[in-house]
Nucleic acid binder design. Structure first.
Length: 444
RNA sequence: GUGGUUGUAGCUCAGCUGGUUAGAGCGCCUGAUUGUGGUUCAGGAGGUCGUGGGUUCGAAACCCAUCUUCCACCCCA
């Protein structure tokens, strides 16, 4: 049998796991500093929990799990006979893999509302699955790192989350641009152009501005039945780069403008290292965002967004809990990884595990090595023993290949004298020291 | 889901319009060096040409299917 891995999924080698953990650890450290609490949810959910939350496209990208047991005997016979997959589905699949962390979180909040205090600040780092066609930086299985707050509509959290983005990416050594906008502004623009009911169409179109250009967007808007008059009004408003200069005659737009200004006021109290840019063409797909929206892209690499989020006024509504406003952001760990790899931003130390390895000349020395190794481990030093008295060249090569920074060579002379040779692999320097000196050396 | 693209040694790739025994570089193994890795030199191992079918006297090459890679769209982290 030929070993194979599913498309869009990957194995992780030790070095890669170290690097990924470095990203996770950095993110967690910042999350915790702002008082966010960790939770986890199952990889599987009721299919009904997931469907209908991500739009029609999203439903297609959900991984569905076939029911266990004799699923065919319970299948919808009519749908089966007609080969109507869509109709057949509910009768043969009741479970699906989670598509993101936000919807399971909404379910979590409703189910545990009496066990948590609001505003509830949580973070969650777990894999999600999408049956998308894979490309570079796009996988079928990938980790998301989400931070959300539910139970408060205070704009302080919008500012806080931007600050978290800034802090995490600064720590990782990535230069990023944090683009912000507000769905209410987009609605406001649509209303100014008298196409309030078509604001979603408009939003989808202008989101593509940097991709298909002004003419492309105009064409798409026309095809949606939006008048040339409305289109010129929309573009007149989009010219504005400064939030303050935006003048709305409708309530929705004014509200969006006020919110953004307030967020900036809060942000003025912190010193951000990265640019926060108001971008009216930022739309973001997910249907449930209602106010603030944000997206992060790396400045020094060509990659889609490496993070995004926004506010959703009524996420828990579908689960029967009203008036629960939430705001959250997500970090795309796999893409951050790819960008950091491309820019060689991972510190060298993070992939180091074993600090020293003991090499022995014969079986007696090997026994002595295990004793020395235990002394080192007791001192908290990560130590390995080469498992046989193979040729020194072979043992050395192993240490070299594993990038173990120090080796100790144990022969009969060393066993007798209690003085061991400690060799630093990078420089090739070798010193003769006793065990306590070696411990001292390796601890520093 | 639509259109395109890719797959040959562990890795990166060459292999002419179908024609003997499928190559290179790097890596790997052994030795030069029986108490010391990285450099050098010598030798060696390693391939169902993604998989299944078809065309042909003959297929890595042509055709079909399928899986995979990457790209554009859609959407998104």
């Amino acid at each position: 049998m030929k070993p194979q891995i599913l498309k869009g999924t990957r194995d992780f080698l030790p070095q890669q796991v170290y690097k990924r953990n470095y990203i996770f650890d950095t993110i967690k450290e910042v999350f915790q500093k702002y008082g966010y609490l960790p939770i986890e949810t199952p990889v599987m959910e009721h299919l009904s929990t997931l469907t209908g939350k991500y739009g029609e496209e999203g439903d297609k990208l959900l991984f569905k799990l076939l029911n266990n047991g004799d699923f065919l005997s319970k299948a919808d016979e009519e749908a089966l006979a007609n080969k109507d997959s869509k109709k057949l589905l509910p009768s043969i699949s009741k479970r699906g893999l989670r598509y993101d962390l936000t919807v399971p979180f909404a379910r979590f909040v409703v189910m545990h509302q009496n066990e948590i205090s609001f505003p509830f600040k949580r973070y969650q780092i777990q894999p999600v699955w999408r049956a998308d066609r894979p490309q570079k930086g796009r996988y079928q299985e990938f980790y998301q790192c989400d931070v959300d707050v539910v139970g408060s509509d205070s704009l302080i959290y919008e500012a806080e989350l931007i600050q978290i983005y800034d802090e995490v990416f600064t720590k990782l050594g990535l230069n990023v641009t944090i683009k912000v906008n507000n769905r209410k502004i987009l609605k406001g623009i649509a209303e100014e152009a008298n196409i309030g009911d078509q604001w979603v169409d408009m939003t989808v179109a202008i989101d593509k501005l940097d991709k298909i250009g002004e003419d492309g967007v105009k064409k798409e808007l026309l095809s949606k039945g939006i008048s040339a008059d409305s289109i010129s009004k929309i573009f007149a408003l989009l010219e504005t780069n400064n939030v303050e200069e935006l003048n709305f005659t409708n309530e929705e737009g004014r509200k969006g403008k006020e919110e953004l200004l307030k967020i900036h006021e809060y942000l003025d109290q912190s010193k951000l290292k990265n640019e926060v840019k108001f971008d009216m063409t930022l739309a973001r797909g997910l249907g449930y965002y209602t106010g603030f929206i944000v997206e992060v892209s790396a400045n020094d690499a060509i990659m889609g967004s490496i993070g995004g989020g926004g506010r959703y006024d009524d996420l828990t509504g579908v689960f029967g809990m009203r008036d629960m406003s939430g705001v959250g952001i997500s970090f795309g760990a796999a893409r951050i990884y790819d960008v950091m790899e491309e820019l060689a931003l991972f510190p060298k130390e993070i992939t180091e595990s074993t600090k020293v390895i003991l090499l022995s000349f014969d079986e007696d020395c090997l026994i002595h090595s295990t004793k020395v190794a235990n002394q080192l481990r007791e001192a908290g030093i990560s130590t390995e023993v080469y498992p046989s008295a193979a040729k020194m060249k072979k043992q050395m090569k192993y240490a070299n290949d594993r990038s173990i920074p120090y080796v100790m060579v144990i022969g009969s002379d060393e066993v007798d004298s209690g003085l061991y040779k400690l060799k630093q692999m990078e420089t090739g320097d070798q010193q003769e020291l006793d065990i306590s000196e070696i411990i001292q050396n390796l601890m520093s």
